[in-house]
Amino acid sequence: MKYTNITLLLILPALLFSQAPSAQEIIKRVDKNILSDSKIVVSKMIIHGRRGQRTVEAKSWQRNIDQSFTEYLAPAREKGTKMLKLGDKLWTYSPATDRIILISGHMLRQSVMGSDLSYEDMMEDPFLQNMYEAKIAGSDTVSDRPVWILDLKAKIKEIAYDARKIWVDQERFIILKENLYAKSGTLLKQITLGEVMQVEGRWIPKTALYKDALKEGTGTELIIDSISFNENIPDTIFSKASLRK
């Protein structure tokens, strides 16, 4: 009996590990959770700056992974500002100047509306399996939820973050915490999920805190007010003409 217990104790971790999905399977499930033909999101960003906070509201239309159109709704200074992403190009329109400007080069690294998110963040392919090789680094608990910890290393060259460490909910396959690193190993950003919600069978973040590790301040809260998947979005939305409408 004694020997049986010891043997069980020795083989238990191996048994558990054999039941856990592989790293690639985990990120595939994470991607599947957010994958949709299209979605419409109404969100707000609460930006905590060094001189107080302000709230920016926006509505986004997204199709596949490479088409997105965002219109800012508030505050008054930003109202009517629009952004269009088509493939690897990003344009912005400001009603004050009636100009459509291509955001490129070092501008892509700039902050979006003073938040802790950059234009590069908006431009990135959201699907981890397209960009990273993954390996399981361990398991832990985040917000009382059991998680797998995965180390991701970029498998393509042109990428904003060379490495990521993600904490994935073992049941819901949603990333609860994420650290983003530069090639040098420097921590660039931290994303921590607050509330999560289930919409059309998917677990998605309701609130998240983005923190640029290189900036002072307490970060930017992203709050999703509403989200709907697989909506029929007209083609005209994803055109430069819609920026001036």
């Binding site: 001189r51 920016v56 930003e78 004050a96 509306m113 003073g114």
Partner: peptide
Amino acid sequence: ATLISSTMYGSMAMTN
């Protein structure tokens, strides 16, 4: 010429 910069509160500022 259009200047694209940031306001003191971090918003994008575009001015002709």
